[in-house]
Write a protein that binds this DNA or RNA. Structure first.
Length: 466
RNA sequence: GGCGACGUACCCAAGUGGCUUAAGGGGACGCUCUGCAAAAGCGUUAUUCAUCGGUUCGAAUCCGAUCGUCGCCUCCA
């Protein structure tokens, strides 16, 4: 089965057919940098990262673009609150974004364009829309004329008439139609601004994504992704302002990530259940959080709980345990068939990136591999190598949840290795002389320090707990 | 009011017409291994998929009703 996934535009799971054979052009809506990003944002970024990595696993070359929106009302507001220039606010959180994504194991995009560095193109795009009659100016503001784009609503399934009835759209006399949206906002005194044919001002919310994606990926590209809540109005408006100008499809596939709730409630600052990505990384490793996210299908809502995180932590140790055991195992004679398991993994992922089912395959494989490894016959070198290779490509490469490096808790590994070597030798001597009290004291003492000893017939292994 | 999603074991979560008298993870209990542990393995933990009807040779999967939960329609990943 080829890679297939759910396309919001058609409301069906569709086989992926790239514009250019072997290549994927993909755009995911990045952050507006007015604050640290939170664990809900993190879910979208992680899942988007996994999709990108899986395409690469499958042999595609991926051109992955994620914007950084660094000029926006919320940034200006924050700047005012903190009494510092909004550009400084943007810079602070753009830097934090890059740092935090890295700590989360989210690979940086091929390009992270910024709105303020794309101003020329944004203005040109708006001007072209005005020239074409799809937008109009009113006193320095420019609005998109929704009536000029007949397909408006095709992504979200909304009808313009319904939107007009909805009383929630603010009445603005200056707009021809309440549903028209802002492309350019004139600057109030003291606000950051750029020169434009309509005077000083800044871009509206949606336009920057249209322009940045098309600048780096072309008029039409393969995949546009983002959080569920962006379907309307953000993505709907992006389509309108892009296709109204080019007359061609904007993105072929639209992918949306489910929302994250905290203890069954929507995360919000007012409810006090708001966690930034930074907060959560204090308590759990990036691998555990990533694994937790991936246990649920990307389109389903995810309920974020402490218990769930703890369960993920334990589950992940099982996978890591096999990875480590493969390293230490002695050469045996039995062969192990990795290919069948890899095929199950691929089938699951090709079917709408079904990470939950993929883990089913991975855990079944783990059980069988552990059994083989512990059997008298052991596992031959070639099997061990291919098993390791598969785990490396899947769990480390695609999912980013396993590490081949021994976690030494930050201590100097050469020194710690030496000390541990000695401790294990001393304890082995005590055990040979059946001095259980002493050997147990060593084991218990180390455990309190965060080091776990595991005895097997091949000797004693140690690892740190995290 | 409009649009949409969902309800699977103690918890999380795949499966969406026959291969399933329902994957996988966590938890619990019993066992094997072990000096004792840990790790690993084995077994048990849903004849049942919110409820009630219907379609079908056959339904967790399709249709209808009912109950419940949630999202979007406004800044939001």
């Amino acid at each position: 089965m080829p890679i297939s996934f759910y396309n919001t535009l058609t409301r069906k799971v569709e086989e992926f057919k790239p514009i250019v054979e072997g290549r994927v052009s993909m755009y995911t809506c990045g952050p507006t940098v007015y604050d640290f990003f939170h664990i809900g944002n993190a879910r979208s970024f992680v899942m988007s990262d996994v999709v990108r990595r899986y395409f690469e696993f499958s042999g595609y070359e991926v051109n992955y673009v994620m914007n950084i929106t660094d000029i926006d009302d919320k940034i200006i507001k924050r700047g005012n609150e903190e009494n510092r220039p909004s550009s400084e606010v943007a810079e602070t959180f753009a830097t934090a974004f890059l740092e935090d994504t890295k700590r989360f194991g989210i690979r940086h995009a091929s390009t992270h364009p910024r709105a303020t560095e794309t101003m020329e193109e944004i203005i040109a795009h708006i001007k072209a829309l005005v020239d074409k009659g799809a937008a109009y100016e009113v006193d320095g503001d420019v609005y998109f004329r929704v009536s000029a784009f007949k397909e408006y609503g095709k992504l979200s399934g909304k009808k313009i008439e319904d939107l007009q009835i909805g009383a929630r759209i603010e009445a603005d006399d200056r707009k021809e139609n309440p549903v028209d949206f802002s492309l350019w906002k004139s600057a109030k005194p003291g606000e950051p601004s750029w020169d434009s044919p309509w005077g000083k001002g800044r871009p509206g919310w949606h336009i920057e994504c249209s322009v940045m994606s098309q600048k780096y990926l072309g008029k039409t590209f393969d995949i546009h992704a983002g959080g569920n809540d962006l379907i309307f109005p953000h993505h709907e408006n992006e389509i309108a302002q892009s296709e109204a100008l080019t007359g061609e499809p904007f993105a072929h596939y639209w992918m949306h990530f489910g929302f994250l709730n905290i203890d069954n409630e929507k995360m919000s600052k007012s409810l006090g259940n708001f966690f930034t990505a930074r907060d959560i990384l204090e308590k759990y490793s990036a691998e555990v959080i990533r694994f937790y996210y991936m246990q649920t299908h990307y389109r389903s809502p995810l309920n974020f709980t402490h218990e769930g995180l703890e369960a993920a932590k334990t589950g992940l140790q099982k996978l890591q345990g096999l990875y480590d055991a493969l390293e230490d195992a002695k050469t045996g004679s039995a062969s192990f068939d990795v290919a069948a398991h890899e095929q199950r993994f691929i089938d699951a992922m090709n079917d709408d990136f079904n990470t939950s089912a993929a883990f089913g395959a991975l855990f079944d494989m783990t059980r069988e591999a552990n059994t083989a490894l512990h059997a008298d016959t052991g596992m031959d070198d070639a099997s061990r190598a291919s098993l390791r290779d598969f785990l490396q490509r899947s769990c480390e490469g695609v999912f980013g949840i396993l590490s081949s490096e021994k976690d030494d808790g930050g201590a100097s590994s050469a020194l710690l290795d030496g000390v541990m070597q000695l401790m294990i030798e001393l304890r082995a001597e005590a055990r040979n002389e059946k001095q259980w009290a002493l050997s147990d004291r060593i084991r218990d003492g180390l455990k309190e320090l965060g080091i776990v000893l595991e005895d097997s017939r091949d000797g004693t292994r140690w690892k740190t707990t995290t």
